[in-house]
Amino acid sequence: MLRTQFNSARVVEAYVGEYASGKSEMAINRALELKSQGRQVTLVDLDTVEPFYTLRPLKELLEQKGLTVIGFSRPEAFGLGETGAMLTPAARWALRREGDIIFDVGYGVYGARTLNLVEEADTSTELRVIAVLNYSRPMTGSKARIIEYIKELGRVDALVANTHLGDETTLEVIEEGTRIIIECAGELGIPVDYIAIDKKFAGEWNLELFAIPVKWITRYMPAAMW
């Protein structure tokens, strides 16, 4: 059984997208999902844009859950002042590691370009760049804005539909956003990898609505105060 896992292709994903679209949440949840399948997983904090809401405060917790986390921990960032936003050197060589690699990338066009700092990111045949979209974010709050935004981002191999309103999310909000995002994906010719939904809706969501897998999300980021 172990052998099968080692033989299966490894997962290498980079989560990009608009500010507060859910990149870190998707990266954490994806890494933990892979870990729960018995795989070896490294989660890489590539967010040099916004050191406020990053993996940093969660690093220890995630390591306890069995992930290898490349990124500064709070104690390591202590005393660095604003330069605490710099990259950990190990992040540059992350693609040379064994096992699955999940990158949490900084927001926007400039955030996405941070991937350039990772050796072999441009030549890797395994890397998939995944853009996270929340239709409730005003910058990606219409079909036209989503399409314009994704085109700006540069390379995008897949989308994740992550529409929510935090604590005020409803099934209708998720459904409307997901529908629009799927329409955009169709026009862009980019697949939607999965729909991300807070696990509290697991009993209520109609899985037949869309022919796209659903991942149930545990929200870790509300605890990630810098």
């Binding site: 500010y19 507060a20 929340n134 409730s136 974010r137 005003p138 709050g141 929510h164 309103l165 935090g166 005020e168 909000v173």
Partner: peptide, 14 residues
Amino acid sequence: KKAFLTGNETVAWA
């Protein structure tokens, strides 16, 4: 309608 924003972004939209 309801939207999901950061505080700074809220200032700009408002």
